[in-house]
């Protein structure tokens, strides 16, 4: 409405900024669209039942990614089983027990530091500590333990967020009825952190699926098909590591794109479930 009175300089500034905003946003959106569509178009035709249900065979010169899928499942399960209790426990300590502000600050700073460390460094330290010092050799378990350290801050943070929403009056009420500290935590606090743990779980799965640098030297790149017990103690490539090996070392771009498409679909599903779960919990909280 004021447009007529604006000076030329102001008009030019406004137009320039508006254009820059729009162009950037369109560029970002177009980039995502291109990546998703390109990977799916190049990848989906290469996905066949044979590819996902067999293991690679040198005799018949065929590639199958079943071992990589199973390795990914094992490593996700092993990591979650360890990281969820550790992360949730640390969050409970911070919100319920810790009185010393300095200690809380130190733990939170440590968690921030952990989330800033590049995965290649995790891979290196994981190799030195788990594979060599603890004598685990290159194995899925060593990889999973490395991923536990990487995902600890995520689970801790999401659990802490959800614990903050448990009203103090609930705790006071339980204490007032004569419950001990542990009883209050078990009956009042822990049920309140379920949504945080679930969110942390989803985010961690996403990160584990996408991780490659940390696993290269800790879990290795074998394609053997094992059960979960043997699988965890022997080396194995996850889907991302297999993608890297097939694309960079062997030039098998068809297989690489098939894996990329599978990873892309899984990423879409994980993002979708994170959004839906977040919405569901937000709604439940407001009721």
């Amino acid at each position: 409405m004021l447009k007529g009175k604006l000076s030329g300089k102001r008009k030019a500034y406004i137009t320039a900024m508006r254009t820059a905003m729009l162009v950037s946003t369109v560029l970002t959106a177009a980039l995502v669209l291109f990546l998703v569509i390109y990977v799916l178009i190049k990848g989906i035709p290469n996905i066949s039942w044979e590819l996902i249900s067999t293991k690679p065979s040198y005799l018949s010169d065929k590639i199958g990614i079943l071992p990589d899928i199973m390795n990914t499942v094992y490593i996700v399960l092993a990591t979650l089983v360890i990281v969820l209790p550790l992360g949730a426990g640390a969050a409970v300590y911070l919100t319920e027990y810790a009185k010393n502000k300095k200690l809380v600050g130190m733990i939170e700073y440590a968690a921030e530091t952990l989330s800033g460390i590049p995965s290649i460094i995790y891979g290196l330290v994981g190799m030195l500590f788990f594979c060599q010092f603890l004598n685990m050799e290159t194995s899925l378990l060593a990889g999973a333990l490395t991923l536990v350290i990487m995902n600890l801050p995520t689970v801790m943070r999401t659990t802490q967020e959800s614990l903050k929403t448990v009203p103090q009056s609930y705790r006071d009420g339980a204490f007032g009825l004569g419950a001990g500290k542990w009883r209050v935590i078990r009956t009042v606090v822990l049920p309140g952190c379920v949504d945080g743990i679930i969110t942390g779980c989803i985010l961690s799965v996403g990160r584990i699926l996408g991780e490659s640098a940390a696993l290269l030297f800790t879990a290795g790149f074998a394609h053997a098909l094992n059960g979960i017990i043997d699988g965890l103690t022997s080396p194995g490539a996850t889907l991302t590591v297999a993608l890297y090996v097939y694309a960079k070392e062997q030039g098998e771009f068809g297989v690489a794109f098939a894996i990329a498409a599978i990873l892309m679909i899984l990423t879409l599903l994980i993002n979708l479930s994170a959004t839906l779960v977040g919405r569901y919990f937000a709604k439940r909280r407001n009721v």
Binding site: L35, Y38, V39, G206, L209, G210, E211, S212, A213, T240, V241, L243, Y244, A247, K248, F253, A256, F257, A260, L263, M264, T267, I270, N271
Partner: peptide, 10 residues
């Protein structure tokens, strides 16, 4: 959320 190896591949 897209894994870094997918960026690398594309």
């Amino acid at each position: 959320g897209i894994p870094s190896v997918v960026y690398g591949l594309v």
